[in-house]
Simulated scan of single mutants.
Amino acid sequence: MKNQPKKIAVLTSGGDAPGMNAALRAVVRASVFYGIECFAIHQGYQGLIDNEFELMNARSVNNIINKGGTIIKSARCLEFRTPEGRKKAYNNIKNGGIEALVVIGGDGSFTGAMIFQNEFNFPVIGIPGTIDNDIYGTRYTLGYDTAINTVVEAIDKIRDTASSHNRLFFVEVMGRDAGHIALNSGIGAGAEEILIPEENLGLERLLESLKKSEKSGKSSSIVVIAEGDKTGKNVFEIASYVEKNLPYYEVRVSVLGHMQRGGAPSCFDRVLASRMGVFAIESIIEGKSNSMVGVIDDKMVLTPLKKAIKGKSKINTNLIKVSDILSI
């Protein structure tokens, strides 16, 4: 701790996720606990360029652990993708006497952080905040648990309508590159079929499965589809194809969209965010940099940003088997 910084900054970047505020709270209060001044940067990397810094204290983050979104805002910043923009950001951060940066976000945010660290040798620690759970180096990302619970609650309500009207519902959830939300919420909500980017189920197998469901006496079904499903069709094209080939089904489509990002974070996400925020500050104090904090086997770990970005989060293939068995 001999080189403990006197000032650090924190920003949230990319898509918002439940738990970001809880992580911000933990970063600020851990900084105060260890005698470090903590500055919040508003509007993500744009705020870094525009010099939108705010000195925080323990009371600045009162009553935010239960709030979704991010109170310091998030924004896309094309200027930060340029050397000139990053130089402006670096000058602001150095003129403010800030010695380390905590970035709460996803792989795009971490890419910016890694480039910034490499160009200016400036200490950066990342906290994974994304509902997709698609970052290597952590079992869970902030917002994922809340998102799947939001999806399950929505599907439960859709099933009431499906059962009442003998309908087949296609429910599209987020997950362009990873099927964690679709697979886990689909099993949790009792979906008959689940389509994810990691597995190419194929439309013919989907038809066969739905035919079996109908013959077994099911009068209604739920199919959960990740937006990045490998069939190459969007949810409306898939629904139209099924409707043409299985005319006895009354088909409906529900796209859950950004409702999956919102809402108060679950207890799991609040605790995870708190642990990650404290660990991020302690890692900075220990001189660690260019890394992302994560949790594996319930232990806090650090993963190099490059590995976190380039690595692939793995789907639990056993859950695919579980889904197939339980959908009969």
Rank of each mutant, 00 (worst) to 15 (best):
P265E: 08
M114Q: 13
G44Y: 10
L101D: 12
E208C: 11
V61I: 14
S283E: 01
C38P: 04
E79N: 12
K307C: 10
V103C: 07
N57W: 11
S31R: 02
I238P: 08
V103N: 09
V251I: 07
I181G: 13
E250A: 14
C38E: 06
G287A: 12
M292T: 01
E54M: 14
G112Y: 09
G106E: 01
G277C: 06
V224G: 06
R139D: 14
L101W: 08
K67T: 12
I49A: 12
G35I: 02
N245F: 08
L210K: 02
L272E: 04
L272H: 07
I71W: 07
D160C: 02
R252F: 12
I71E: 14
L168I: 02
L168D: 00
D324K: 15
D16E: 08
G19Q: 09
G129R: 04
K212Y: 10
V103F: 12
C38V: 10
G137E: 00
V171W: 00
G69A: 11
M114S: 14
G19A: 10
K6N: 08
V151D: 01
N91F: 06
K212W: 12
G44M: 03
Y248P: 04
A100I: 02
G228P: 01
G202W: 03
E227T: 01
I315R: 04
P5W: 13
T12Y: 10
V278D: 02
I64Q: 11
R275F: 02
K157I: 03
I281M: 06
V293R: 03
N3F: 14
G311D: 05
Y248E: 14
F120Q: 04
L183A: 13
I222V: 04
E172D: 03
K306P: 11
F268M: 13
V102D: 00
I296M: 13
V102M: 03
V301P: 00
K230Y: 06
N133Q: 07
E172H: 05
K67Q: 12
R159G: 00
R25H: 09
G96F: 02
K306A: 13
N118R: 15
S323M: 13
D229K: 08
K67H: 15
N92G: 01
S254Q: 15
Q260L: 05
I131N: 01
I65R: 07
K157F: 04
D298M: 12
